[in-house]
Nucleic acid binder design. Structure first.
Lengths: 106, 106
DNA sequence: CATATACATGAACATATGTTCATGTATTCC
DNA sequence: GGAATACATGAACATATGTTCATGTATATG
């Protein structure tokens, strides 16, 4: 497997920021829901059994980072994945956590 | 792009934990260094211009999460990537942050 | 215009996190 | 064994973060 080119400091910081946003279970669940198709805020709160406020706060962060995009339709605002790259990242990570442990270490 | 299967709660939490660890610039730099080959703690501290203690603390977390593995050789301990999955995740994320923005949004 | 619905946002707070400093532990060499 | 080197670790602290509560703003409907 060819490793990625060594990134610049700015790229590293930007990547870390992305990972940081994905590093919270609530936000990760939000992203997964958005990958299945556009979801409005209220439905998201219902699906995740979280408060509307909490969901909205997280959506704002994810949207600002361009992980999600939003589209208003009447009173509701629908959120969905901004592009397909995040899906790749998640698939790879899913494989990583699904991998059996090769060696038993303390 | 086929989205990943909807993960269980436990998988989501585990993935979030991984992303959280990658969501710090110092740790991300450590991971990138390890992808280039095994590095001992002192060299890592030199390369990243950080204290030995800081590096060691971060290495412990990354090792505990099985993102890195360690191998002692005499007085030195060499760290390297535990497997190739992380490299895939990083490559995808690099593409993501490198992507030009499609729409101009406030 | 008034009311209701759907979402956004600011303040506040408890907790988590990254870093430093000091100290401890393992390994090598004399 | 003692000194030196390389790494690990615990405490402490400033700051960041996730969540809640209360309130604000936009859109639709009567």
């Amino acid at each position: 497997m060819t490793p990625p080119d060594h990134p610049t400091d700015d790229q590293t910081i930007e990547m870390a920021e992305m990972f940081r946003l994905m590093g919270d279970a609530t936000r990760l669940r939000i992203i997964f829901e958005c990958l299945k198709g556009p979801v409005c805020v209220g439905d998201m709160a219902d699906r995740l059994q979280a408060s509307q406020s909490l969901i909205s706060h997280h959506l704002r962060l994810l949207r600002a980072a361009r992980i999600l995009k939003s589209e208003r339709q009447g009173k509701q605002v629908f959120y969905s994945a901004a592009d397909e790259h995040i899906s790749c990242v998640l698939t790879d990570m899913a494989h990583h956590v699904g991998e059996p442990v090769s060696e038993f270490e303390v």
